[in-house]
């Protein structure tokens, strides 16, 4: 019987591919973020709004992940930007290898912004580096203000929190102040936006943040 010490990172393959992606994107001066949330929080709507506001000034590509369908890609294709759909066939998160393959299928000429819309899930995607510059977590008011406490790793790993569907606040038992304090207790450095894709509230601030990150 012998004991062999190996000390190897379990996600070493994923991390190596993510590092390659990051290097390629940075060499091409493409800013990228990984958008994460539970299903139905409004990720695709926020991406649509950002594309509508920014596509005349910024070259945008989107990689969108879905467990089963290409419905999100169909929605985004109407906006005439480069879109690649990853269907995970039941997989609960995107991995760097899937993103690399999707990137290879996209025409990245003139692209300055890559949005990766992850599979709707607040647990599994948190630990997978996709080579993005930063993570944006979306939480809608219908999900309740205790979500940051229930899914702390996701809020800890993100740098931006979007509180979406604020137009529904009069109808749901949810306090934006509680979302803010709960999220900031997990991650005091979070930058927070409040948005509604239905009435357009906060979309300008959210798009302004994206634009401020684009390489000049």
């Amino acid at each position: 019987m012998s004991l062999v010490t190996i000390e190897r990172k379990i996600l070493e393959k994923n991390d190596a591919i993510a590092a390659e992606i990051r290097e390629v994107l940075r060499s091409k001066k493409i800013f990228s973020f990984n958008m994460l949330s539970s299903p139905g929080s409004g990720k695709t709507s926020l991406v649509e709004k950002a594309i509508e506001q920014l596509k005349n000034r910024i070259g945008i590509a989107v990689i969108t992940g879905d467990v089963q369908t290409d419905l999100d890609a169909q929605r985004l294709n109407r906006l005439e930007v480069s879109v690649a759909q990853i269907v995970t066939n039941g997989g609960c998160h995107l991995e760097a290898g899937l993103v690399r393959d999707a990137l290879n299928s996209l025409n990245m000429n003139g692209i300055q912004l890559l949005i990766i819309e992850n599979v709707g899930n607040l647990v599994c995607p948190a630990g997978y580096d996709l080579g993005e510059d930063t993570k944006v977590v979306v939480l809608s008011t219908t999900e309740g203000d205790d979500k940051p406490l229930k899914y702390p790793a996701m809020f800890r790993n993100a740098s931006v929190l979007i509180i979406n569907k604020i137009d529904l606040l009069p109808y749901v038992n949810c306090s934006v102040e509680k979302i803010r304090s709960n999220a900031l207790s997990i991650n005091p450095h979070l930058k927070i936006f409040e948005t509604s894709c239905t009435i357009g509230a906060g979309i300008g601030n959210w798009c302004g943040w994206i634009e401020s990150k684009i390489y000049s």
Partner: peptide
Amino acid sequence: ELFVKEIELF
């Protein structure tokens, strides 16, 4: 942390 520390062989 998320790594394989050691393996025991026979």
